[in-house]
Nucleic acid binder design. Sequence first.
DNA 1: CTTTTTCTGTTGCAAAAACAACAAATTATG
DNA 2: CATAATTTGTTGTTTTTGCAACAGAAAAAG
Lengths: 210, 210
Amino acid sequence: MNVNFDIEKFIKNFENSCHRVQKKTFAKNEVITSYIEKRNQFCILIEGNADLVRYDLNGNRTIVEHFSKNDVFGEVFYRVTTNNELLVEAREKCEVLFYIYDDIHTKCKNSCKFHQVLSEDLPELILSKVTNLNMRIELLTKRSIRDKLLGYFTMLSTRNLSKTFLLPFSLTDLADFLSIDRSAMMRELKLLREDGFIEKSGNRITLLYK
Amino acid sequence: MNVNFDIEKFIKNFENSCHRVQKKTFAKNEVITSYIEKRNQFCILIEGNADLVRYDLNGNRTIVEHFSKNDVFGEVFYRVTTNNELLVEAREKCEVLFYIYDDIHTKCKNSCKFHQVLSEDLPELILSKVTNLNMRIELLTKRSIRDKLLGYFTMLSTRNLSKTFLLPFSLTDLADFLSIDRSAMMRELKLLREDGFIEKSGNRITLLYK
DNA sequence: CTTTTTCTGTTGCAAAAACAACAAATTATG
DNA sequence: CATAATTTGTTGTTTTTGCAACAGAAAAAG
């Protein structure tokens, strides 16, 4: 999520300015947080890569969202009574800011920089998230594996301003992100290559159409 | 989307308070708006029911979102370069407030009520939308038609605080909302009845499990 | 540097979902 | 209120997707 919002500045402002914000470091594969209703946690990923993951009763794993540097996440964005547990897992070493969202309303008494900046830029920040979620819904509502793959590739291509780009996922994770079976996806990737839609070597993809 | 945000109050405050807000009325099946990049339209549905709809190249129709009284929509929430046209269609007679989002930042010179209330409550308003979108993603990532139906029914049941509830859609539209084939959905609904999961008469559903 | 683990790529087969087509019921409309 | 249009309900067939299982490649761990 690339926001107009200047997170670099934001983090600098926060340091030593609000003692209610916590900064923590996580190793690869560690669980950063588990979504619990009504705690209203609000997190900013300062460094690294992480996924919001759901495991359902059939053992299916779904990558609900993928987060990279400067993305925000946490229960504030997910006030749904869901049956399945939602976990945020670090894909690599991560640094994360933690905050309880209610504090943004019941403003910090010393009206610190953190709150000042956050309350100004919050709408913008959340709107970016909305945009991301809408993009995700657009992908998930595509009716075939082929359309999901092409839709996702087109999006990455647009975002990178290039026909060639790197997948931010392993292929296994890509399948869990698009909510499809991995072997069926591999089959479709092969067909897409044979039909001249894409070139692929490792996780570098090139679009050949249009 | 039922928000803490008091829209009734909000609308009262707006009337005669900001001349940059427009109120329009639409008949059933009229197009309320078409999403155009960078115009940043922001809309509030004061009365009625409407759908955000996408038609893809294969002729598939998808109901991207369903809006009822007090929901917000518009391009502000959809700043994605999408290939397909997105339309908001009135399902019944609708009343809608229109506004250009940028004006919220470059504040109204006369600092009218509209802006005052909007800038205070905007984060809350958008967060509700995020929650809605997350729920939608949870449904769409379910792996079978059965799980999608049961997931949606459970959600409606929770929202209505009752095992019995009315579908806000025709069955045809429900299929477009869950992004599945209508006849396959009908078959699955029949099986759900036969297997004792639900009772159904018209668009009134009763959950029989747990 | 060797071993273990995870990821990629492939395939045959089973299951699920989409497609297509139509009759009956319901709902809009002149 | 009669007719047109839409929605519901059903089913046979085809296509797509998922499942299972495995070998080789690559990456991580010791």
